[in-house]
């Protein structure tokens, strides 16, 4: 199977869906050039009409996505960095996420907000945040955060074909990551987790870049005779509760690893759900590993210290054996 980068997989997904469906268009700042490469090359194939460079106006562009989706198109709105979605919050939270319900089912919004999530490039607080937890909190917005080239392609294609608003987060740290991506057509359904490593003693549930940190932790733990299962949720809303609860039933231990601020993080939701629905299966208290509770510092050394690390995950797992 051919090996491609995470970014190449995004390019392929966009190009294939634009070829497949005339209603799919792309808009955002510098999407023609494709500054972070996800949209690169599309303008050459699809031209000005379908690859639309906009002014730096996140709120208006996010809202234009709503209006275009409500009137028959399937826009992909590229907002470059997760933090830029804060500028567009009204249109995403009040309009995109609520319109169908608020209007009694009249609106159908096949709309993808695509952006980069998380830290890893020492770019400072404004370009290094995770935003997935905010959108998990909003009803009726789907949230996707893939970790592998294979997953990002299949999930992005599915997100574009989905008739609901989707916040599609690419992991900033994973752009150059290589993996097997078939040339043949495939999609991956939203809302289905993937077991990235099977194990028997503890369930590590995670998403995005921390999938790799968790896999490294599982490797360390294996040396000490602890068999960790690593579940990559891939989709955060709706998320695959059944897969997580089934794994906890088997292992009896649960560690939630999530690159976001600790309070009301994704990990908080997973941990609460496991505590609520699998209490009888648990041999130890659930554990969370999140970012440190501070804005993201610039120093590469400090940035690394803020993020979930292999050491922190190993320590959290060991607490479940204490």
């Amino acid at each position: 199977m051919p090996r491609k980068t995470y970014i190449q997989a995004i390019q392929e997904a966009l190009a294939e869906e634009m070829r497949r469906d005339e209603r799919v268009l792309l808009m955002g700042e510098d999407v023609r050039l494709g500054v972070f490469a996800g949209t690169r090359g599309l303008h050459a194939e699809f031209g000005d009409r379908r690859v639309i460079d906009t002014p730096i106006s996140e709120l208006a562009v996010a809202g234009a996505g709503v209006g275009a989706a409500a009137t028959g198109l399937r826009p992909v709105v590229d907002l470059m960095f997760g933090t830029f979605l804060y500028l567009a919050f009204d249109q995403i939270a009040n309009q995109a996420g609520a319109m169908r319900y608020m209007f009694g089912g009249q609106a159908t919004l096949p709309l993808v907000y695509m952006t980069q999530n998380g830290a890893g490039s020492s770019a400072g607080h404004h370009h290094s945040q995770s935003v997935h937890q905010f959108f998990m909190n909003m009803p009726l917005i789907k949230v996707v955060l893939p970790s592998t080239p294979y997953d990002v392609k299949g999930l992005l294609k599915a997100a574009i074909r989905d008739d609901n608003p989707v916040v599609f987060l690419n992991s900033l740290a994973l752009g150059g990551k290589r993996g097997e991506v078939p040339d043949e057509e495939y999609t991956i359904p939203l809302g289905v987790a993937d077991v990235k490593r099977a194990g028997a003693d503890v369930t590590i549930c995670t998403v995005g870049a921390t999938v790799y940190t968790s896999l490294a932790a599982a490797e360390e733990l294996a040396k000490e005779g602890i068999s960790a299962e690593v579940i990559d949720l891939r989709t955060l809303s709706p998320w695959d509760k059944d897969a997580v609860l089934a794994s906890v039933k088997k292992t009896g231990r649960f560690v939630a690893v999530d690159e976001s601020f600790p309070t009301c993080s994704a990990a908080s939701e997973w941990a609460a759900t496991v505590a609520e629905h699998a209490f009888g299966d648990l041999k130890a208290a659930v554990q969370r590993v999140n970012n440190e509770d501070v804005p993201m510092p610039f120093s590469p050394k400090l940035e690394k210290a803020v993020l979930p690390t292999t050491e922190k995950i190993v320590a959290a797992v060991k607490r479940t054996f204490a």
């Binding site: 809202g63 234009a64 709503v66 209006g67 275009a68 009137t71």
Partner: peptide, 11 residues
């Protein structure tokens, strides 16, 4: 306001 811009874009 932005929603109308999107409807215009769509047209």
């Amino acid at each position: 306001i932005p929603v109308a811009v999107g409807a215009g874009l769509s047209a």
